[in-house]
Design a protein around this nucleic acid. Sequence first.
DNA 1: AGAAATTTGTCCGTATGTATC
DNA 2: AGATACATACGGACAAATTTC
Lengths: 140, 140
Amino acid sequence: MPTPHYGQPRYRAIADELRGRIESGTIPPGALLPTESALTAEFRASRGTIRQAIALLREARLVATEHGRGTYASPWRHEGSSDGSSRTETRQRQVDADPELAALFAVEVGTALVEQQSVTRARGAVGEVIRTYRLLRAEQ
Amino acid sequence: MPTPHYGQPRYRAIADELRGRIESGTIPPGALLPTESALTAEFRASRGTIRQAIALLREARLVATEHGRGTYASPWRHEGSSDGSSRTETRQRQVDADPELAALFAVEVGTALVEQQSVTRARGAVGEVIRTYRLLRAEQ
DNA sequence: AGAAATTTGTCCGTATGTATC
DNA sequence: AGATACATACGGACAAATTTC
């Protein structure tokens, strides 16, 4: 079997499917998710891929896992707003300084900067994008 | 070879070792870590285990990974309040959405966005520049 | 411009360890 | 003790992004 992940990797698709079940109440708060081996059968994915999907949900605090017991849907459901689906994704990359940034940092145009971008989503829609720029080496 | 992980799993021990190198400056801020394959050779662990260790460091924001490039030691210094001689200038203006922002906000390229820029200076030198983007019409 | 090499990303299958039921 | 379920670890294969030649 090859490894085709066109557009979106499988573990993310699986995580989205499970997220849907949790948010829709198909899997109620506090209930156990299907076991990893049940999920491998259902999605016909390897256990590693299933675990990657669950890791995503765990990072988003949507589930909690206990060693020999299983993975639970999180029982707490109150994250500021009524729906609690606001989330932040962060990414870091290197960019070249544009003229304005170069002037601010007192470096030459094109100098490498670190850009950290945070995207805040609420109800699926992007609320705000925050980009933070720093020098590669903080010469303090 | 069995899988003995008495007390502490291997991936955590490896992560601790790498963390030490970063915090001690053996791997300076912004520098590339050894490649995954180099680390498999050094620690004689499988690539999966190495990747698990790096994932721990990434969660702790100690490193950042870029596809095809490598994993960098994070260039931050802890934002201590020891000094107090830092100040922030803020400015707001209207900009056109570049392709990336347009995609995030699900609008057309060139759509007007509000950009708020904060420049933090310490001892005269710019420490970081933060740009926050929002839609003009907040449907909130 | 394009091909090759490098490096991280995804996915599979298997085996064994450890905690819980 | 036995069965079940998650945790750790290995090895291999191919995909995708980047860099190098």
